[in-house]
Structure formats: C-alpha cells, structure tokens
Simulated assay, not measured.
Amino acid sequence: MPLNDGRYAGPLYRALNPVYASVPLSGQGAAIHGGRFNAKGVPALYTALDPTTALREANQVGSLQPTVLVSYGADIEPIFDTRDVNALDQYDLSPQHLADPGWRAKMLDGRPVPTQGFAHRLIADGFAGLLTCSFAQGATESSLNIVLWRWTGAGCVLNVIDDENRLGRM
C-alpha cells in the first residue's frame, strides 16, 4: 500500500518533454495543455510510482518521443486515494468516470470533464494530490500515478534527484 493515512513518502518518477527538463518542478506543461486531473491553467505534476509507468504516461499518443526521465524524493500529504470506492462515492464519482477514454475529446471540445471537476473539488478540500491507477496503454493494476497540485509548503516535500546537476546542463 503506497499511502499511509493519506501520506505518500518515497520515490516518484516523471518522464518529461525535454522542453521542461530544466524546470522539473514547474507543472507548466500541464497548466498549458490541461490533463485528466487538471483543467487548463492549473499547474500539476503527473508522477508515477515506477519509471515504466512514467514512460507509458508521457508517451500515450503515437511513437515514443524524446523524453527525460526524472526521479524525485517525496513526502506529501494529504493524498486522496482513488482506489477507495467509498471515498470516490462521496464525490459522486466512480472508477468508470476516472477511466473515461473520452476526457481529452471533451476538453478539446470545451465540454465539462468530470475528472477535472473532481480535481477542482479535491484542491478546494485541501488535497495536495491524488493516487490513481494508470490508464495508459499497457498499464497493469500495479501501475500507479500520483497527480500533484501542490508540492511545496505545509505537508509537501518534493526534491528532484539530480546530485550531478545533469538537468542544469540541459
């Protein structure tokens, strides 16, 4: 179980577009484009609990594109666990809503995206992020992501693992 009473402490991984490699804590790519769990304009870090899931998440459309894999040390709370069906039910959401493959088309068409509304409510309720299963092609039940909306301040520590300053040289 990766969460302990709503707290995640351990490694996280992101596969970044090289454009954002020099700012691995910005969340601006997600803010510009929007995502399953963040509306446009809302910064977010889409992380994974393992490197393979991070690579799958970053390259869901077409062929594998150039990618920079980044590792973080995290100690963040509170994190909402979407695997808890009873907790999801309190937000009038189901696992099927989370897995909706049409979320991107809705967003591009300007229609409401239930998972973005859900994220908005979680942010308002003080959650730093959420733990969810990966919906990327090839993901398994053990492929997990943590989407963060807050990664600094009270209850949030997220450090880039870059002892040799490799990202600073990009």
Rank of each mutant, 00 (worst) to 15 (best):
residue 112 P to T: 11
residue 94 S to E: 06
residue 105 A to D: 14
residue 88 L to R: 02
residue 129 G to Q: 06
residue 114 P to R: 15
residue 132 T to K: 00
residue 117 G to R: 15
residue 127 F to L: 09
residue 108 L to F: 08
residue 134 S to I: 01
residue 112 P to C: 03
residue 127 F to K: 06
residue 135 F to A: 15
residue 104 R to S: 09
residue 106 K to G: 01
residue 92 D to S: 13
residue 113 V to R: 07
residue 111 R to Y: 12
residue 88 L to Y: 01
residue 135 F to L: 13
residue 136 A to N: 12
residue 117 G to V: 10
residue 94 S to M: 03
residue 133 C to H: 09
residue 89 D to K: 13
residue 136 A to R: 07
residue 121 R to W: 09
residue 111 R to P: 01
residue 130 L to V: 09
residue 87 A to G: 07
residue 84 D to R: 09
residue 99 A to N: 04
residue 98 L to Y: 02
residue 86 N to V: 13
residue 87 A to M: 06
residue 93 L to G: 00
residue 136 A to L: 07
residue 104 R to F: 06
residue 120 H to Y: 13
residue 111 R to Q: 13
residue 112 P to Y: 14
residue 96 Q to W: 07
residue 112 P to A: 05
residue 126 G to C: 08
residue 96 Q to N: 11
residue 132 T to H: 04
residue 103 W to G: 01
residue 94 S to G: 04
residue 134 S to R: 00
residue 103 W to D: 02
residue 122 L to A: 04
residue 115 T to H: 06
residue 93 L to C: 11
residue 94 S to A: 04
residue 94 S to V: 04
residue 131 L to P: 14
residue 106 K to E: 02
residue 98 L to R: 01
residue 118 F to P: 10
residue 93 L to Q: 11
residue 129 G to P: 02
residue 120 H to K: 15
residue 89 D to E: 11
residue 83 R to P: 03
residue 137 Q to A: 11
residue 108 L to T: 05
residue 133 C to E: 13
residue 103 W to E: 01
residue 137 Q to W: 12
residue 117 G to L: 15
residue 92 D to V: 05
residue 91 Y to Q: 03
residue 104 R to K: 11
residue 102 G to R: 11
residue 113 V to N: 08
residue 128 A to M: 08
residue 95 P to C: 09
residue 102 G to A: 08
residue 128 A to R: 03
residue 92 D to G: 09
residue 137 Q to H: 12
residue 116 Q to E: 08
residue 100 D to M: 03
residue 87 A to R: 12
residue 111 R to D: 10
residue 97 H to I: 05
residue 130 L to W: 02
residue 86 N to H: 05
residue 132 T to A: 14
residue 84 D to V: 10
residue 128 A to T: 08
residue 118 F to D: 04
residue 95 P to K: 06
residue 83 R to D: 13
residue 92 D to I: 03
residue 107 M to N: 07
residue 119 A to M: 02
residue 101 P to S: 00
residue 133 C to V: 12
residue 129 G to S: 05
residue 121 R to F: 08
residue 106 K to W: 02
residue 104 R to E: 04
residue 92 D to M: 13
residue 94 S to Q: 04
residue 134 S to Q: 03
residue 123 I to E: 06
residue 86 N to R: 12
residue 103 W to P: 00
residue 123 I to T: 07
residue 138 G to R: 15
residue 88 L to E: 05
residue 81 D to M: 02
residue 119 A to R: 03
residue 117 G to Q: 15
residue 106 K to Y: 06
residue 136 A to T: 11
residue 109 D to K: 10
residue 105 A to M: 11
residue 109 D to L: 12
residue 131 L to A: 05
residue 82 T to V: 00
residue 110 G to P: 08
residue 82 T to S: 12
residue 108 L to H: 04
residue 82 T to N: 03
residue 125 D to Y: 09
residue 122 L to S: 08
residue 83 R to K: 08
residue 86 N to K: 11
residue 135 F to Q: 15
residue 93 L to K: 09
residue 82 T to F: 00
residue 128 A to N: 10
residue 131 L to F: 03
residue 124 A to H: 13
residue 134 S to K: 01
residue 108 L to E: 14
residue 135 F to P: 08
residue 94 S to H: 05
residue 117 G to I: 14
residue 115 T to P: 01
residue 97 H to M: 10
residue 99 A to F: 00
residue 114 P to C: 15
residue 103 W to K: 01
residue 88 L to W: 00
residue 124 A to R: 15
residue 106 K to S: 05
residue 120 H to C: 08
